[in-house]
Nucleic acid binder design. Sequence first.
DNA 1: GACTAAGCGAGACGGTACGTCCTGTCTTGCT
DNA 2: AGCAAGACAGGACGTACCGTCTCGCTTAGTC
Lengths: 207, 207, 207, 207
Amino acid sequence: MQSRTSAARPGRPRSAAAATAILAATREVLVEVGWSKLTLGDVATRAGVAKTTLYRRWSGKNELVVDAVAELFDELELPDRGTLAADVEGVVLQFAAILARPEAKSGLMAVVAESTRDDALRQRIGESIVDRQKRLVLEGRARAQARGELPPEPDAAESARTMDLIFDVIAGAVVHRALVSAEPVDATWARSFTALLLNGLTAATTD
Amino acid sequence: MQSRTSAARPGRPRSAAAATAILAATREVLVEVGWSKLTLGDVATRAGVAKTTLYRRWSGKNELVVDAVAELFDELELPDRGTLAADVEGVVLQFAAILARPEAKSGLMAVVAESTRDDALRQRIGESIVDRQKRLVLEGRARAQARGELPPEPDAAESARTMDLIFDVIAGAVVHRALVSAEPVDATWARSFTALLLNGLTAATTD
Amino acid sequence: MQSRTSAARPGRPRSAAAATAILAATREVLVEVGWSKLTLGDVATRAGVAKTTLYRRWSGKNELVVDAVAELFDELELPDRGTLAADVEGVVLQFAAILARPEAKSGLMAVVAESTRDDALRQRIGESIVDRQKRLVLEGRARAQARGELPPEPDAAESARTMDLIFDVIAGAVVHRALVSAEPVDATWARSFTALLLNGLTAATTD
Amino acid sequence: MQSRTSAARPGRPRSAAAATAILAATREVLVEVGWSKLTLGDVATRAGVAKTTLYRRWSGKNELVVDAVAELFDELELPDRGTLAADVEGVVLQFAAILARPEAKSGLMAVVAESTRDDALRQRIGESIVDRQKRLVLEGRARAQARGELPPEPDAAESARTMDLIFDVIAGAVVHRALVSAEPVDATWARSFTALLLNGLTAATTD
DNA sequence: GACTAAGCGAGACGGTACGTCCTGTCTTGCT
DNA sequence: AGCAAGACAGGACGTACCGTCTCGCTTAGTC
């Protein structure tokens, strides 16, 4: 509502080009030197922008990196592959593809680490990054229910709890495999993992 | 024979007390200010030690924090609870208990993040922290097989692959729940998760 | 034309107050702890300035101390006392008065010592300090020639050589008396020294 | 008296070779890196000696350098050249020859600078270095008096005062020429200087 | 068409931490 | 006791970034 009218604040408007250049420069630097050696001064220089311009829009390194990495998740999409298993594998592989990019690898865990002491940051990560992926899982379940692969949810609370569990399992396993074990998340692994997960789910519900 | 038994190198030997004090101080500082504001100078001061002493033994913040956090995992142990499900829940809860401590929370993800650009660091984390937990899972499986809950492994390679998958799922899910979703890993969650995992496993093997 | 008048370089201009405060702080510290224990960090703190600001303008301790001490020589002046002898005594006593100040005592010899291995430093000392005093001697000679106490110089090269000799004798003797022998350069000593010097000069010229 | 009886102190006696090696190493380092970058650890290493050995004998850098430089003055000697003027020139050139050596150049002014805040150091310099040269001047005067070039001294106090003046003039002028003006003290300069000095003295005494 | 108000580049500023170097002291075991 | 070796507490170094601040200069909207 506020931004719609936008009220034409007096003074020179902020340059849209600057924001784009800064986020792109941030990802470049992440790729080249990693999170811990990323410098706001360096980012500003590469973006051809003054440090003041950067600080006018982001309060610090963490916020900037979250936004820079979040843009990587814009491309997430879940093509309908026909079966629940195929859809899950799709989510897994898409997520893994993003995690394989050095700008995500380096930045993502770092901001998560920072977020353990900064609630505002955690919330920002949740909105910009986590929820973006969660949406895919929700969509997949809706499709599966439409296809009749899964029964409709009778209890909303129970449903939400299961959803969270599934999401933690999927996202957690992929991240752990990719970053901690440092092994490739390829089609083979995705198939094994999906089998484990779906068997667990269907067996559980038939209990 | 000479180098194995230290051979009484010339000069004043390194103080054993210093290492202990430094690691303890590191955990203290992690609790108080978190990883990103942890300063080696600060750690040294608290430990009552000169910065030189610290740098003589650790090459930097990352290595130091890995060792400091690794000590937290020394207490890991897996009491025999009688059934596979109970044992898995035990592992999950023990791991979650460590992750709930602020010194681990703050430091663990940070060093994992750093390790994405530093192979030596990743290996160090693997040996000091990850393998320590993996051992519990291996032990749990052996017990289950002894009890007859799980069949013996016919194919060693396949067995190792399954083991890795299980480990990524357990560790990943717990970490994601605790640090990213920031929800408590309590007995209820542990039971749901274990059910999902074991159902997945047994169903899968009967396929 | 552009660079002469500074041309309004971009960015925030350097604070003039900072330079003043730094040089004053340097002299304070010289008085209190002497050259060898003078710390650039300490100077910066006292001046209410960051170390960066200090290093942006001076390349190190030596350059800083030269400038700080050089300012002491700003007050040098040679009142016309009527005779050559009186003027020489005036120069001697003025120089001695500066050397008696602890900030000069402590710093001057130290930078001279350093200058034996640093040509740029020696040149800086020459311009900022030595030449300032030399000027007085030149002025004294011109006056004496105007008064008819000394004959005009026929040979410029010979004149320069004599001038250098006289200057080394005056400056050297005063410094040696004050700093090495550590005896006061008072009116009595100045009179004896001046007699020796002027007798030597006039006798020499009559040879 | 103490060293005569020496009493065969218990324990291993101090190695005489160590002291020699340390002083030689000190001069080497002075030549190579100069006073300000000379390190006691470095000296010890070069001398093939432990730092403890060094500290057992000298209390610090200044004392060590004074002793190392003082040894250079051991070779001072004043051959009888027949006339007072020749003897003075001899002293001047000998002193200049030592000052021309980099180990003296670098170290001598530095310890003098330090001595402005350390009386014990000044005394040590006086005894080890300054008096060594002063002796030559005294000897020269005695010879000149024996030859009849100078009258015998009637008043001891006046004599001492004149002696000090002469010494400050000679030593001061040579040091200033060599280190501050950084011009060579060669035979030509020595002749001009000596003429100035002796003319001043004889004219003064005939006043 | 001047005025106002904010954005922008540049770069200096007060700070904090870095990782290294040196000091002078202290253990070691050997001589 | 002396001695080589080397660890130790402490402190300064000179550098790198941080986040803020002044500069002079756009670049829009409003009178």
